[in-house]
Structures are given as C-alpha cells and as structure tokens.
Nucleic acid binder design. Structure first.
Lengths: 199, 199
DNA sequence: AGGCCCATGTAATTTGTTACATGATTCG
DNA sequence: CGAATCATGTAACAAATTACATGGGCCT
C-alpha cells in the first residue's frame, strides 16, 4: 500500500464516521492539521487506491458528484492490524527549535523578539484549545460521553494540545526573560563568535 | 535557493563551527534529529550549492577527501536575514497523535499497551536528556558559560526537550490509567461504533 | 589482513505541496 | 445573478528517504 500512514489514517477516520474526500480534507484542515497535515491532492488519489483495494466503498452519492466513503470490514481489520503490529515513527520536525540553534546569530533584542512572536502565536493556539475544551465539557455535561470511541480519543488529543501549549509558553517566556536580563552577555558572546568568521 | 530551511540550517551550524559534510550529518544524527532530521544525501548536494553561491567555502582539506566548510560573511548575512525576515513554519507532524485519533479501534487492553510503549520510549528519551543536562551543568560549573553563543542556544533547546518529555510522560500516564480504569466503558463504546461497519 | 568508521557522492523512489482546471449548488 | 463554498480531480514541482556505489585510513 502506497503511503501507509495517510492511507491508514483515512481508514481510521472513515471507521469513525463515513465521509467524502472533501469532508476528510476539511477534517484535516480543522482539527488534524496540528498532528498530520494532509491536503486534497494527497487525499483523493489515496481514497481511489483504498477503494480499488476493497478497504473502503462508496456508501452514498450526493449532489456535486459527492461520494461518501465508508470502511469495509477488511478496511477496519487493516487499520487495526497497522495499529497493533507497527510502532509510530516518532520523528518530529520543528523548525522553531532548529532556528533556536542558530538564534545566537541575532543580537539580544532580535532574539527576544523571536521569542515574543513564539509566545504570542502559541498563546493564541492555547486560547483556541481552551475554548474547544470548554465547549466539549459543556457538551459532555448534557449528553455524557463514554470513556471510549472517537470523541474520547479526540478529547485525549486535545488534552495533550493544551498541556503542550501551556508548557511551550512557559518555556519560551522563561527563555525570553533570561535573554533580556543577560542581554550584554548575549551580545558579547555573539560578537566573539562572529569575529572569527571569514578569516 | 533550493531547500531554504536545510540550507539556512547548514549556514547557521557552520557559523557556529566549521565542519565537514560528514560532521554535519553526525550532528544532525546525534543532536538535531529531534528537531530536524536530515541525512547525508540531502546535506552534500546542499553544501555544493551553498559553495557555488559563495555562502560557504572550503576552509581546510583533510584525509579521506574531507572538506571542512566555513561560512563566508555573505553566508552569515544570509542566515541572519532569514531569521529576521521570515517566521518559522510551525507545522508539526506527530504520528503518535494521529494514531491516537483512531485508537478506539483497539480494545482497552491494546490501547493501554499503546500508551505503555509511549511511556517507556519517552522515559528513555527523558533519561538521556537528563544525563546530557547533568553533564552540561558540570561543564558550566568548571568553565562557566555566557548567556549567548551556540552552546547557550543548545542548552535552551535541551531545556525544551526536558519539559516536553516530562509533560508527555505525565499526559500518557494519566491517559493510560483512565483507559484501564474505565476499560468496560471503553470496550462498550468501541463495540457500538464497530457494529455499524459494513452494513 | 580484516573490520570498522570516516567520508563523499549519485540514483531511484516516495511523499508532500502548489498550481492548474473544472463544474455544481446554495445563499443572499 | 454573483459570490462563496462544495466537490473532485491532475500536473508540475520540491523535499526527503532508501538504496547503490566507492574508497581511504585507523586499529588490532
């Protein structure tokens, strides 16, 4: 199966609820983008392949050529087997941390501004997650929710997002404050290192 | 410039210390892999291009055809301008969280085992970072370290890694415990959802 | 002498993104 | 009737991984 991760993710999502390619693309855009970005030019060919393999089928045709897909029994088995038999690839790609390794190239003021941007952006994300969490809690109080099923798993992911953003903001704030406090030392160390360039 | 992120990262790392392509590849493998994985088939062509563009130069030739590269003044300026003028792409790709969204496909016992694996792996990482941190602290007590320069930035990244892994282990442990405690509910919700497949 | 790591490169393939292309339906 | 959004697809390009390929130098 070409592109194992994306294909299995599509199976898993369709197992939770039958959807069209467009619906899946919106789901990736709205909630999954923070875990696994995927856009329609990847999704549509992958769905076509899953259908050929008999792991999903068109369960309904709607207006505007919409095709709603549902997993088959084989599709569920495939997704489960993938979860059981393989470990996640735990590689992360974090451009901000990569940039941090070269942040000493900027002066203390610019470095503090870098962290200011990070703090602002991650506070914004945190607020968004807090709001979603509050809405979820309200829903839960009305309808209840079992400790299982797709919604419960989504709630666990949201908890992680909250913790992550809180911790990130705390770390970035602490780093920013130290850079500002020791600005003179920061600039001196920078000067020493830059002096040895191109000689 | 083809592949802006990797090329700028190479400039930044070479600004910190002149190195060979092999040295850069080892650095990515040892310490940068957790922020930005990159391997030699990407690194060597990128270095060749940076040299053609005059942003780095061969500062030394060693045994086994080793070429040590150093940044030029233009290379430093380019890296600084990139840091100043562009914002990091904050997209993350986390296969574990993606899998979490479909974890309800497994029964409570298997789901708890999934978290057990995560906890074990991230505890291992945490221990590694704690050891590096202890070594850094010992070095700092002997030699001191200014609040700036490449080593200080690496220490900030290490702090983030420590916080991240601590928070991750705490979250995963809490999630695992709740799944185990409410195993019956988990399995019931799973059964309900799976029952509607392929009809 | 043989094994291991140093050291550099290219080719083939896979994965992901951006741009191009088209048309239907709904809502104001 | 015009704009927005729904809906699906392909083409071209960029980025990243895996496999292939080669040889030098060090250590025992």
């Amino acid at each position: 199966m070409r592109n194992s991760v994306l294909s299995r993710a599509l199976l898993g999502l369709l197992a939770g609820e039958p959807m069209s390619g467009y619906g899946l693309a919106s789901l990736f855009k709205r909630t999954l983008a923070r875990a696994w970005p995927a856009r329609h030019p990847q999704i549509y060919p992958a769905l076509a392949e899953l259908e050929r393999a008999g792991l999903i089928r068109v369960s309904e045709q709607g207006p505007r050529r919409r095709k709603t897909y549902a997993v088959t029994r084989e599709g569920v088995a495939e997704a489960q087997e993938w979860l059981r038999a393989t470990s996640p690839d735990r590689t992360v790609r974090n451009e901000t941390i990569l940039r941090l390794f070269m942040l000493w190239l900027l002066d203390a003021k610019e470095a503090a501004a870098f962290f200011d941007d990070e703090i602002a952006e991650h506070r914004r994300r945190l607020e968004g997650f807090e709001q979603t969490h509050a809405e979820d809690e309200a829903q839960r109080r009305i309808h209840g929710r079992a400790a299982g099923g797709p919604a419960f798993c989504a709630a666990l992911a949201l908890e992680w997002a909250l913790r992550y953003e809180q911790e990130y903001v705390a770390w970035a704030t602490s780093a920013r404050d130290r850079i500002e406090r020791d600005a003179a030392k920061w600039n001196a160390a920078r000067g020493r290192r830059l002096a040895s360039v191109d000689r």
